[in-house]
């Protein structure tokens, strides 16, 4: 670490980093602080690169784009995936079960699902982003346009000219 005061401190720091026992503070846009393990925080590629670049680990990371409710939920995912092992078949099955329950709960509250999706995108949490976007995609797949509009509350605002174009496309599709 660039800020290390001596060889011994740097070594201790490296050891701590290795063991993943260091704690990192993430702060929501409402000023609420969440203390998480480094392993959990490293699920986010954004935070990972800041930590690895020797960023202000001690001061914590303010996240001006994420509110407390969303951050709490995102951390729930990161804790599960960052702090638990996924080597054995059983461990992987347990994580898959967690994901399934996690996304089922989010899917019931679409607005919250979008917030978590945006936060996952902002923080570059690949697994979580894949999970939420796949969930939204699955809702779109296999539905008629009217069903999709109902599922997401999309307002029909096509003009007569649009409809004419669509009719034209349909005759060729």
């Amino acid at each position: 670490m660039a800020t290390g005061s001596g060889a011994a401190a740097a070594a201790a720091d490296a050891e701590e980093k290795e063991s993943g026992s260091r704690m990192i503070t993430l702060t929501s846009n409402e000023g609420k602080a969440f203390v998480v393990t480094e392993a959990s925080a490293r699920q986010s590629a954004t935070i990972r690169s800041m930590v690895d670049d020797g960023g202000c680990v001690d001061k914590g990371f303010p996240l001006p784009n994420v509110d407390s409710k969303t951050l709490a939920r995102v951390i729930q995912y990161c804790d599960e995936h960052g702090n638990k092992e996924a080597h054995t078949v059983d461990e992987r099955a347990a994580l898959a079960k967690f994901d399934k329950d996690f996304i089922a709960e989010l899917d019931a509250d679409k607005a919250f699902l979008y917030d978590v999706t945006m936060a996952a995108n902002y923080l570059h949490i690949q697994g979580l982003f894949a999970l939420t976007t796949q969930c939204i995609a699955d809702t779109i797949k296999g539905k008629t346009p009217e069903e999709i509009r109902t599922a997401f509350g999309i307002e029909y605002d096509l003009t007569a000219q649009d409809e004419e174009e669509i009719k034209e496309e349909d005759t060729h599709a």
């Binding site: 994420v66 509250d109 679409k110 607005a111 999706t117 995108n121 976007t133 997401f152 509350g153 999309i154």
Partner: peptide, 26 residues
């Protein structure tokens, strides 16, 4: 803005997402 709004309801929050995100979903 990247924060929870009024909790959704009948509002179309999906269409309000950024192009990049919607493309990822598509």
């Amino acid at each position: 803005k990247l924060s929870a709004g009024d909790g959704g309801g009948g509002e179309d929050r999906l269409s309000a997402l950024h192009d990049d995100l919607l493309v990822q979903i598509l």
